[in-house]
């Protein structure tokens, strides 16, 4: 029996989260740990430093389930996370990236 759940087929909506974070080793670990612990699947992840090299921007593609609000609050609590913004699935960042995965 496959444990892979097709969330798109289950009718869940995609959400793009945009995080501004401190740029140092360990930040990704803090963020990914929160999602992994709760078995909250991250469909896509992208991270690049900003022009101000002390900060990075992380993009997360997730499916919206009833735990998303709590998930966002937990991310906001991290000391290294400066801000969290939420976008709809129409956001272009992952769409453009998709051609690299064909």
């Amino acid at each position: 029996m496959s444990m892979v759940i097709d969330r798109a087929q289950a009718g869940l909506v995609k959400v793009v989260l945009e995080l501004e974070v401190a740029n140092h080793a360990g930040v990704m670990s803090h963020i990914c740990g929160l999602f992994a612990r709760r078995a909250f699947n991250v469909e896509g992840i992208l991270c690049m430093p900003l022009a101000d090299a002390t900060r990075s921007r992380i993009w997360l593609l997730v499916f919206e389930d009833q735990r998303l609000e709590q998930m966002i609050k937990q991310v906001e609590k991290l000391e290294d996370v400066i801000s969290v913004a939420r976008h709809g699935a129409e956001h272009k960042v992952f769409e453009r990236l998709e051609e690299f995965f064909r």
């Binding site: 080793a25 360990g26 670990s29 612990r37 991290l78 000391e79």
Partner: peptide
């Protein structure tokens, strides 16, 4: 130690 204490601390530093 840093990795091990991520989920147990409010924050940690190396």
């Amino acid at each position: 130690t840093y990795g091990m204490t991520i989920p147990l601390t409010k924050h940690n530093f190396l």
